[in-house]
Simulated scan of single mutants.
Amino acid sequence: MAHVHRTGGGWAPPGSGPGVRRRTARVLAALLIAAPVAACTIQKGPFPGGTSSPGGGPSVLAVKIDNVRAARPPTGLEAADVVYAEQVEAGLSRLLAVYASRIPADIGPVRSARESDLELLRQFDRVSLAYSGVQTKLRPLLAAAPLTRVSPGQAPDAFHRSDTRPSPHNLYVRPARIPGPAPVRTAAAETGFRFGPAPSGGRAESTYSVRFPAARFGFTWSKERQAWQVSMDGAASRTSAGGRLAASTVVVQYVKVGPSRFGDRSGNNTPYTETVGTGEAVVLRDGRAYDARWNRATPQDGTEYTTGDGRTLPFAKGQVWVVLAKR
């Protein structure tokens, strides 16, 4: 169970996908590097780095990223529009980073896909998922999912291994080498996220942490950076370039996490995180915490966040982290 403690260039997905899916323009994605928001308005986040699809939605690149101690620091994570943190086997965690506005030259370390990723990514009209592999029993579900698979088997020239750390924590993807046409960077899309001025209310918070059975995420408000600096397992999270990871908005989204039909080679069951439904959340922005509700009616819908009185809860412009915590 997750416990919360508070103290006060050049990539585009190959192919056009399996046709138009309903309401997928309302994606959760990353729309954070949007145009400035006018003072009294709430803006639906554009996807300046996306490409248009038959359904009018964006194209994005999602990368499954390893974040255990041996895999740190990550490369390219600071450029992601949205970072999802989810529980995996043995109580550990993994990251799913979504890119549209900026596509870094190198991203990783890349690890294996999970069943929960397939439901989470159905919010996007067109998405390519870069991953290192998948367990045999999950392959049919992954093959049937409405996404483009990008693994060393499908795109060997896009992946490389670093000699600076041990396997399996040394696999990286170069998005520019993923087969496909050049992206069109003028598309826009609606999203479940909304961006605008901070709402009234909330409570002042300087730190916030979320515990998984064998992992912990911490967020500390930096007034100077106007962002929540990220820690993992009690250590400050930095990138391979040396900068501190920081999010403009952090969402702690309480979800159902239960056993799945799958497991790892050590006999640990793979948790399944349900991201369709409704529940409670805490949204951190501007040094304050807001109690919220989240709602996603169908797999094709984006996730909407509202205050207690039903009003849309806008996010601050910048990178968003969504921590999927067991309720």
Rank of each mutant, 00 (worst) to 15 (best):
G15A: 02
G19M: 12
G19W: 07
T24C: 15
T24F: 05
A25Y: 10
R26A: 13
R26L: 13
A30Q: 01
L31F: 00
A39T: 08
C40R: 10
C40W: 14
G45H: 01
P46S: 12
G50L: 09
G50V: 00
G50K: 11
G56C: 09
P58M: 03
I65P: 14
D66V: 05
N67H: 13
T75H: 10
L77G: 06
E89M: 07
G91M: 05
L92A: 06
L96W: 08
S101L: 03
I107T: 03
L118M: 07
R126D: 13
L129A: 00
Q135D: 06
L141N: 13
L147V: 04
P156Y: 03
D157F: 06
R165A: 14
S167V: 03
Y172A: 03
A176F: 08
P181T: 10
P183Q: 01
R185L: 15
R185E: 03
R185H: 12
A187I: 11
A187Y: 03
A188I: 04
A189H: 02
G192P: 07
R194Y: 10
T207D: 08
S209V: 14
R211Q: 05
R211S: 15
A214Q: 14
W221T: 05
S222D: 14
Q226W: 05
W228G: 07
Q229A: 12
A241R: 15
A246C: 00
A247G: 01
T249R: 10
V250Y: 06
V257T: 15
R265D: 11
G277R: 04
G277Q: 02
G279K: 03
E280P: 14
R285Y: 02
A292I: 04
T298D: 04
Q300N: 13
T306G: 07
R311I: 02
F315M: 07
K317C: 10
G318C: 08
V322S: 03
V323M: 04
K326E: 13
